[in-house]
């Protein structure tokens, strides 16, 4: 399938183990090693947040790299841009920590790094074939595919279920 790949979340498969959070923070550390990352400064931060919804739903929330990204247009220092691959990136050197992006992100997925006074969010792991959160997820709740390929899978899955139901 053509088009850039996106991170999809299959909520029904998430058990809330937070392995993705750990993998994300480690990937965004200097050492890229869990044991070393724990004591690193500035503290490596996760950019995916596994949230709980009562009674028992778990929802990994992360930057959607919106087509019409409010953060990118709101940024007062020109620190947020879109790459050719469609990833919305915050340039830490240009960020001044004014938090306008935090004020406009409807998903609440832009973090404030208090040690560096810069904002941070999912960068889709440049340099990795598959983002760390996706490859770490033990239940395949996180999927890295193109929109077309993901919706094909969903259609196929539904068709299979319908056939199975008919055969019963």
């Amino acid at each position: 399938m053509s088009g850039p790949r996106e991170i999809f979340v299959r909520i029904s498969r998430c058990t809330g183990c937070k392995t993705c959070e750990i993998a994300c923070a480690v990937e965004h550390s200097a050492s890229k090693n869990l044991f070393a990352a724990v004591s690193e400064r500035p503290t490596p931060k996760t950019r995916v947040y596994v949230e709980g919804v009562l009674p028992d739903k778990r929802v990994p929330v992360l930057c959607r790299h919106c087509d019409d990204a409010p953060c990118m247009h709101a940024c007062i220092s020109g620190a947020i841009r879109r790459t050719a691959e469609g990833v919305v990136l915050t340039d830490t050197d240009k960020c001044i920590g004014c938090w306008t992006c935090v004020m406009v992100c409807p998903y609440g997925v832009i973090g404030r790094h208090l040690e560096t006074h810069r904002s941070y969010r999912c960068d889709r792991c440049p340099g990795r074939e598959i983002p760390a959160c996706v490859s770490s997820c033990p239940t395949d709740a996180l999927i890295y595919k193109t929109v077309g390929s993901f919706s094909d899978d969903v259609r196929k899955h539904v068709a299979e279920e319908m056939i199975a139901a008919k055969e019963e």
């Binding site: 935090v102 004020m103 609440g108 973090g111």
Partner: peptide, 10 residues
């Protein structure tokens, strides 16, 4: 603490 401010704006 201004976390999630954009959500409230929405």
């Amino acid at each position: 603490d201004i976390a999630g401010a954009g959500m409230y704006r929405y």
